[in-house]
Simulated scan of single mutants.
Amino acid sequence: MRPEASRDHRALRPSRVLRAVAVLAAASAALLLTACSGSPTSAETPRAAATAVPAPTSTPDPFPKEPLTASTRYVALGDSFAAGMGAGAEQGSCRLSANSYPSVFARKSGIDLIVNAACAGATTSDLLKHQLIALDDRTDLVTVSIGGNDLGVAAIAGDCAAGKATACRNEVTAALSLLNVLPDRLDTVYSAVAQAAPNARIVVTGYTLLYDASDPNAPDFQTAAAINAATLGLNEVIRQAVDDQRAEGKPMTYLPVDFAGHAIGDRRPWLNTSGSAVFHPTAAGYTEYASRLVQLLGTAH
C-alpha cells in the first residue's frame, strides 16, 4: 500500500492532531518537572500525565477471539524489539534472535511463525518498504513493534547509558518534539499491514518502561523519570493510533507490556544496561512479551 492511500480520511479527523498535541504537552510537562524542578517529583507523575489524555469514544471491538491452531500462520514485523536485539544468539545485520518474543511466543503457543521480518533500527518507513512483502491473504496473525526509531531512540540510548545527563534530557526533549508526526506515520503503517494481510488479526505492542523511578532520592532519578515519561508518551500515541484503526473496523489491538519489578534499578532487570543492546530487553524480558501474547491470544488447540 502506498503511504498516500490513507491520507484523505486522516485529513478529516482533526481530533488526531489535538490528541497528539495533548500527549506531547503532557509528556513535555512531565519531562520539565523531572528535569528542572528543585525538588524531585513522584515516579507516578509521568504516568498520571500521560493517562490524563481523554480516551476516544468506545466502539465495538472488532478483534476476533478465535482460538489459535497449529496451522495459524504468524508473521512478525517491527524494529529491534521485535527482532530480539539484546536476547543473545543474534544473527545478521537485523540482529534477529531465536530468543525474540515472536520466536518464544510461537514455541509457547504452538503456532507457525512463517517469518520474523523485523530488523534492528527499522523505522515506520523501513517497515513499509521492506517488511510488508512478508504478508499475504494467508497470514492469520501479525505482531507489530514500531515507532521508537522514528523518535531517534538510538541517540537517547547512547547518551543516557553513558551517564550524560544533560545530553540525555536534550535527546528526550528532541524525541518528544517528534511525537506530533508519529500518528500519521503509524496510521499509514497499520493501514498498510491490514491491507497486505486482510484475513489476519493484528497485535501492536507497546514499549516497556525502562526504569524503576520509584526512589526520588536515587542519583539518576530525574533522568530515569524523564525517559519513562517519553516512553509513556510514545505508548499513548501508539495506543491512540490503534484505537483509530479499531474504530474503522480493523481487527487490531494494542498490547502494553510492563516489566514491573524488573526494570533498570531493580535487583534483577529484564533489560540490558550496557553494550550495544543497552535499553533492550534480555531473553527474560522478551519471554515476558511472549507471555503477554499468550495471555491475550491463548495457545494452539
Rank of each mutant, 00 (worst) to 15 (best):
Y211P: 04
N235A: 04
R138T: 15
A120F: 05
L232G: 13
S191D: 15
G152D: 08
G158R: 15
L186V: 02
K164W: 06
R185W: 01
P183T: 05
C160P: 12
A229I: 07
P219I: 01
V142W: 12
S177A: 15
G158Q: 14
R169D: 15
L209E: 12
S125W: 06
N180F: 11
N180R: 13
A229E: 09
D150W: 08
L128H: 08
L209I: 11
L151H: 03
G148C: 13
L186D: 03
A157K: 14
S191L: 07
A225N: 09
A230Q: 12
C168L: 03
L176S: 07
C168N: 03
A162Q: 03
L186P: 00
L141V: 05
L127A: 14
S125N: 13
L132M: 06
L186W: 05
R201Q: 13
A175Q: 07
D137A: 15
L178E: 14
V142A: 05
V193H: 06
P198S: 14
I227E: 13
D126F: 12
A120L: 01
L178Y: 06
C119N: 01
D126P: 03
D136P: 12
G233T: 01
D184A: 11
S214A: 06
Q131N: 10
E171M: 08
G158F: 10
K164P: 05
T124F: 07
S125L: 10
I202P: 00
D220I: 01
P198M: 12
I133V: 15
A213K: 01
T231Y: 05
A120P: 08
C168A: 04
F221E: 03
K129F: 10
L135Q: 12
S177I: 01
A175C: 06
